[in-house]
Nucleic acid binder design. Structure first.
Length: 498
RNA sequence: GCCGCUGUAGCUCAGUUGGUUAGAGCACUAGAUUGUGGAUCUAGGGGUCCCCCGUUCGAGCCGGGGCAGCGGUACCA
């Protein structure tokens, strides 16, 4: 909807891909973050907050061979012409923080971070240009126990959010294994010349869940045409090479008893690849020893992750349940978090190799999934008790009533507008007020207040069709002495709780 | 970025082969009801028919070009 602003007034519109948060969105997210925080801290991770803005070169996001920042990040120039960018993830700022404070930090250094990140990409359904991310990383060790712990922590995080065991699974793989497979079909992972093809193959494999084996085979070979008629160029592999890649990718789904053994067979003696399998075996053993069976943490040879910088184990948390969407079609939420080992990020700053591993949870996506699971119980803050202003000359009295309720720990406010009684009732209704306090001169003379239960009243309204009866019958309304205002309101609140 | 679809009231949408003053439902405001949120009835406000150019006596409708939105795809740190 592009409305040209009248005259020269600015259009009151949100930039595309961004959104305002209110009510349920906020309370739901706050609750999720609180639960995640508890799990992270229980594992021993320390909180770290870094600014939203970093120097673009610290994020490592300059376009190759130019002095312009990469597309995909929101960037601007400072007065001194230095490029700055909004962070697009939590990992790059972590690498900067570690490099900058290397001597002070305990090694291994373990921290979690939560906050918004920004990506300058085309927004889609459920995809925004600002979203909440939640990361936990361990920096300064190449011990696979850190990778195992990341997987276990992800599983615990899912359960802490109320996702039952069996409705999610953490899948792991290893870049070293993938590279071993690539080497066996003539793509050298270390070679500059093969880098493009390597990425194309990895990205093709990453799409297995969406496109299926046939689609991936096309992408590995000549290329693929999508529904809209758009053509995607393939990796141009030969049939034998495609079969080999697919054999590996399908290994864990084949149901073989010893999947690791099958993969070792495919790797045909490739040393790096076999080392990768050994790491996966170790992670598997650690997870099992801690009680995390394959229903929670499992090897999946089709997991790739689109990222270039991963150097070892990679993992992905997936929701396995299906839900019926508004349009009646089944909706799969799929990946809600992922991560892996990245051993070269800090070296960009210090030259010193600092191994690290960690993962990231997409909070917004999980929140949508939880809503469908019915777990996002509507915990929106209930509306305030509204004290109606019946007599403008008596504002101090009404203000005092609101304050009395507040002192009793009840969310309350005096109506601050200037309209009459009917609009005040409408206002209270719109605010979701559980009840209103009414005191006109008649009640005041008797030292009483009227308290109207709006929730109960709404129920009664279904049975009342006569307007006069509705207005004059004063349903769900009681008159009590002023001294009983607090206890009466409390009783109404208690009645509607839960 | 590429491909496709769609742009009419705040929202969802009608709108005849091109023909007076562009409609409906919902929402909003007011009244019926001087101190009672709902329901009902009545009335009312609200439009650059996305923009520009063209064809025509005449364009919401036809043609061209833009822009925006949606969907797919690519990218996704």
């Amino acid at each position: 909807m592009s409305k040209a602003p009248k005259d020269n007034r600015p259009g009151a519109r949100l930039p595309r891909g961004l959104r305002d948060y209110a009510g349920d969105d906020i309370s739901g997210q706050r609750e999720m973050l609180d639960k995640l925080r508890v799990v992270f801290e229980r594992y021993g991770y320390d909180a770290l907050e870094t600014p939203a803005i970093e120097y673009t070169d610290a994020l490592g996001k300059f376009l190759p061979d130019t002095d312009r920042p990469n597309a995909g990040v929101f960037s601007f120039q400072d007065e001194d012409e230095q490029w700055m960018s909004l962070r697009y993830d939590m990992t790059a700022p972590l690498a900067r923080h570690v490099a900058e404070n290397f001597d002070k930090l305990p090694k291994p250094y373990r921290r979690y971070a939560m906050g918004p990140v920004w990506r300058n990409e085309k927004p889609g359904p459920g995809r925004y240009r600002q979203f909440m991310q939640c990361d936990a990383d361990t920096v300064g060790t190449d011990n696979v126990a850190a990778d195992a712990e990341a997987c276990m922590l992800m599983a615990d995080a899912m359960e802490a959010l109320g996702i039952p065991r069996g409705s999610y699974v953490v899948k792991m793989n290893n870049r070293k294994v993938l590279d071993g497979v690539l080497a066996s079909i003539g793509i050298d992972p270390a070679s500059e010349a093969d880098a493009g093809r390597r990425l194309t193959v990895l990205r093709a494999v990453d799409k297995l869940d969406r496109l299926g084996a046939k689609g991936v085979a096309l992408l590995l070979g000549p290329g693929r045409k999508d529904e809209s008629g758009d053509f995607t160029k393939g990796a141009g592999l030969e049939q034998a090479a495609i079969d080999r890649v697919l054999a590996f990718v399908g290994a864990s789904a084949s149901g073989a008893a010893d999947v690791f053994g099958v993969v070792e067979g495919i790797l045909a003696g490739n040393e790096g690849g076999l080392a990768g399998v050994a790491e996966l075996r170790a992670i598997d053993a650690l997870a099992k020893a801690a009680g995390y069976g394959p229903d929670r943490v499992t090897f999946d040879s089709s997991i790739v992750r689109g990222l270039d910088y991963y150097t070892g184990p990679v993992f992905e948390a997936e929701l396995t349940f299906e839900v019926t969407g508004d349009d009646g079609k089944p909706v799969r939420f799929g990946s809600v978090g992922g991560g892996g080992r990245y051993d070269d990020l800090v070296a960009r700053f210090t030259g010193q190799r600092v191994p690290a591993t960690g993962f990231s949870i997409g909070v917004s996506r999980l929140q949508a999934a939880l809503a469908h699971l019915g777990k996002a119980k509507s915990t929106a803050t209930p509306g305030p008790v509204v004290v109606l202003v019946m007599d403008k000359a008596e504002l101090p009295l009404y203000q005092k009533m609101a304050q009395t309720l507040r002192d009793a720990g009840i969310r309350a406010e005096m109506y601050l507008g200037t309209a009459g009684m009917k609009p005040q009732m409408k206002y209270a209704d719109k605010r979701g007020a559980p009840c209103v306090v009414i005191q006109g001169s008649q009640e005041r003379d008797k030292g009483e207040v009227q308290i109207k239960d709006l929730i109960e009243g709404a129920k009664r309204s279904a049975e009342i069709t006569d307007s006069k009866e509705w207005r004059e019958g004063r349903p769900a309304q009681v008159s009590v002495p002023e001294a009983q205002m607090v206890s009466t309101v409390r009783a109404i609140l208690a009645r509607h709780k839960g």
